[in-house]
Design a protein around this nucleic acid. Sequence first.
DNA 1: CACTTGACCTGTCCGC
DNA 2: TGCGGACAGGTCAAGT
Length: 290
Amino acid sequence: MPELPEVETVRTGLERLIIGKQISVVEFDTPKSFPNNAEDVKQFFVGTTIVRIRRRAKILMIDLSTDYTVIIHLKMTGQLVYRGKSSFGAGHPNDSLIGDLPDKSTRVTITFSDGSYLYFNDQRKFGWMKLMSTAEVPMIDFMKRVGPEPLADSFTAAAFTQRFARRKNTSIKAALLDQSVVAGVGNIYADESLWGAQLHPATRVGDITRAQFTVLFSELQFVLRLAIEKGGSTDRNYVNAEGKKGSYIDFARVFRREGYDCPRCGASIIKIRVAGRGTHICPVCQKQSV
DNA sequence: CACTTGACCTGTCCGC
DNA sequence: TGCGGACAGGTCAAGT
């Protein structure tokens, strides 16, 4: 569920909370959560200082004062939560969604030299973090294949449309979820932007007109920007770097709103399955062409 | 190469 | 109340 807006929200939170902090201890549960050998962790991670936090697609990069970077993918249920020295949990005025940490889904605990912590929690264990040299990051398969950032200043509707040329025979929803077409879109913002563009998610890419792609591009940018402004969407697990929820879900028009009225025409939102994913549409505004 | 499906996991919800 | 099964969805491997 962390998609571009959620990962971006975590990024800005971490930027505010952990830049300049020095790492003193790193602990993890299994090698899958942190697959580096102890020697590298000791040599390139412990004792270093955090200098920069970057994001590309749904991947976070924490640059260290050495030429090393920790890259993190939250997948569906990953959380990166900072806690100060006086650890606060649920019920505290800071109103975290989660309680005391570490808990049973904590995979990695990073202790800073000032006594504060960064926890990597992941209920379903799909997420991972990995230490590698900064120069190596762009060389990993995902980075080589991933498409443009949809909110980049230089990215235009024409360029967006062109990205879909490779995927003519699949559904627009499958193509939107394909990270090599455009970066950072997941199930929530795919459904929300397709509703905005009044496109049925099962529409064949090759049947979509240039004008429709232009509308879809602007709707996608709209929902991503709004979601960043609202701190992302918390459906179940997502929290920001302070453990707090995002509020985009309150503004969602179709996602997880089956049975409610379409804000455009009043028809009842339904849930269907497209590209192997739960998919939410207005059956009146988003007619299947063909 | 384009495209689809299943695997990876665990917690939750639904029907019996 | 307990239990089995479906479901949640990001990415990759393996299949057609």
